[in-house]
Computed example of a mutant assay.
Amino acid sequence: MDFAAKIRLIKDFPRPGINFRDITTLLQDREAFPKAVDAMAGLCRGIEVDLIACPESRGFILGAPLAYAMGKGLVLFRKPGKLPGKTLQYCYQLEYGSDALEVHQDAILPGQKVLLVDDVLATGGTMAAAVELVKQSGGQVAGILFLMELLGLGGRDKLGNHPVLTLIKCDA
């Protein structure tokens, strides 16, 4: 299946010169969405994984069905103040400011192998923060999986030597 054809391109959103890749059109397609999840799970064959972890919010959309399909637990990385227990936090810089992610202190146990999942790899800032939270927890990054990678933005460069897998690659 041509998954890239299921993703809508919206020019000049959120501002002029930006080409926004809208995954909602793939998600609403009752045949394409489950096939995309299955294909993403297939990319991970051979990678030893204990947990799936994903950042807020679109990572949740893909991380949950992947955890189910792969028979793994799910860990959520949230924006500050959203988790009720004791958390670890990692702050990171964005092109337009800063942000942070948090995870419960006991969500990832030392030595657990974690597959990180998100929708789009662009500049890599959010996922680099997720990598740091896994490390703070004592876990190991087994791999990093994206539905789509926007080429030319240098996102992979921020993710170190971890295996990076993407279902779709397209120009930014």
Rank of each mutant, 00 (worst) to 15 (best):
L76T: 11
L76P: 10
L76I: 09
F77K: 09
F77A: 15
F77Q: 13
F77N: 13
R78P: 10
R78Y: 08
K79F: 10
G81P: 15
G81A: 14
K82H: 09
K82Q: 04
L83E: 11
P84M: 04
P84C: 02
P84Q: 05
G85W: 07
G85A: 15
G85M: 02
K86T: 09
T87W: 06
L88I: 07
L88N: 13
L88W: 15
L88K: 15
L88C: 13
L88P: 06
Y90C: 05
Y90H: 15
C91D: 14
C91G: 13
C91K: 08
Y92D: 05
Y92V: 02
Y92T: 01
Q93D: 15
Q93R: 13
Q93H: 13
Q93L: 01
L94S: 05
L94Y: 03
L94G: 01
E95V: 00
Y96R: 10
Y96W: 11
G97I: 07
G97P: 10
S98H: 13
S98N: 09
D99M: 01
D99C: 02
D99Y: 01
D99S: 15
L101Y: 14
L101H: 07
E102D: 04
E102S: 01
V103S: 01
V103F: 03
V103T: 05
H104D: 02
Q105E: 08
D106M: 02
D106F: 02
D106R: 07
D106N: 15
D106Q: 12
D106A: 12
A107D: 06
A107V: 04
A107E: 05
A107G: 10
I108S: 08
L109T: 10
L109D: 09
P110R: 00
P110G: 06
P110S: 00
P110D: 01
G111P: 02
G111L: 03
Q112T: 07
K113M: 04
K113F: 06
L115M: 14
L115R: 09
L115F: 11
L116C: 13
V117L: 06
V117N: 12
V117F: 10
V117T: 05
D118C: 08
D118R: 09
D119L: 02
D119C: 15
D119Q: 07
D119G: 14
V120E: 09
V120M: 12
V120P: 11
L121V: 10
L121N: 14
A122D: 03
T123K: 09
T123G: 09
